[in-house]
Amino acid sequence: MIVLMHQRDGTVHDGIRTSRFSLKGCIDCHAVKGADGKPVTIASGDHFCRTCHDYAAVRIDCFECHASRPESAGASAGSASFPGREHDGAALAQYLRSVGR
């Protein structure tokens, strides 16, 4: 998160919009498809960011403003789906390996 905050200032204040500075870039790759084949939003427990933050009991507010899925449905979205809602450490690690490209 420290790294992200530095990059957000680079984007907002200095106009640097390369992929390394882009939360949109993160979302485009780390999108997770739901049962309907479309990327899930932060409302779903399967959302890439939520899986870890739910596990750590941390509520993130990034997506009160930022879009939590790519704009064009299916565009570069990952094909992974979360194995279960148990959120145990081993399942979480396996899931993150499958979607973390």
């Binding site: 949109k24 009160e64 403003c65 930022h66 879009a67 704009e71």
Partner: peptide, 12 residues
């Protein structure tokens, strides 16, 4: 509260 903002225009 807002949903489905444009990815390049965050607003909340």
């Amino acid at each position: 509260p807002l949903q489905d903002q444009k990815p390049y225009a965050p607003r909340g």
